[in-house]
């Protein structure tokens, strides 16, 4: 008897994992909401210190990379292996670009003495300390997810290259894509909450 993968089952398993991720970030957003309620003024001032241009740029980069991942699944299912590989490479590049922007953004903040446990934050108003604390925890955890997502995309790339992932058998690519979209989902909320607070 020929072994047959349970495609739906594989996806349900991935979704179950994604639910735990949603709750993980949900918990952090609850913290944000509560402290935003307590310190609206400091949060608004903190938000103005963040670089909106880099934030907007990174939002567009992640949205485009989500599109290319989704398109690479369409491509592999239509047996266009080369197109699928190219789209995956673009997605990986977008992830890299996102991290480079993040590096410059964080580096700029560090240079101004704003980093976790910095004397300027500890001795300043508590609301400001909490805003930047949450900023580093949430964007840091998100950045970690970007790195994991890029690793999954790179593995998918190799598997397609080796013909282990094909138009008939693409569950790994699909689940990596779901993970990548989750990273995008989280950023869609992070962007207005941190960069555009009012």
């Amino acid at each position: 008897m020929k072994h047959q993968d349970d495609q739906t089952g594989i996806r349900i398993g991935m979704w179950l994992f994604l639910y735990t991720e949603i709750i993980l970030f949900g918990g952090l957003f609850v913290l944000y909401a509560v402290y935003f309620h307590d310190y609206p003024k400091e949060f608004a001032e903190g938000g103005k210190e963040l670089n909106r241009i880099i934030g907007s740029l990174n939002t567009c980069i992640l949205l485009i990379s989500s599109f290319t991942v989704a398109a690479s699944i369409t491509a592999i299912r239509q047996e266009c292996k080369r197109l699928s590989l190219a789209l995956l490479a673009i997605s990986f590049g977008c992830g890299l670009l996102f991290l480079i922007n993040k590096y410059f953004e964080w580096g700029h903040k560090f240079a101004h003495g704003i980093y976790p446990n910095a004397p300027e934050l500890i001795n300043g108003p508590p609301g400001r300390n909490i805003f930047f604390g949450l900023y580093y925890v949430i964007t840091g955890l998100h950045g970690l997810h970007v790195i994991i997502g890029m690793t999954l995309l790179a593995i998918s790339f190799v598997l397609i290259w080796q013909n282990s992932v094909t138009g008939q058998r693409y569950a790994f690519l699909e689940n990596s894509g779901l993970y990548w979209h989750l990273v995008d989902l989280i950023w869609i909320f992070v962007f207005p909450l941190f960069y555009l607070v009012l």
Binding site: S66, F67, V69, A70, G177, L178, H181, D184, L185, I188, F189, F191, P192
Partner: peptide, 15 residues
């Protein structure tokens, strides 16, 4: 509300 709309698009189509 705008973020939720964006998220819905990603969930419904990309995912």
């Amino acid at each position: 509300a705008i973020a939720s709309t964006k998220v819905s698009f990603v969930l419904l189509y990309f995912m």
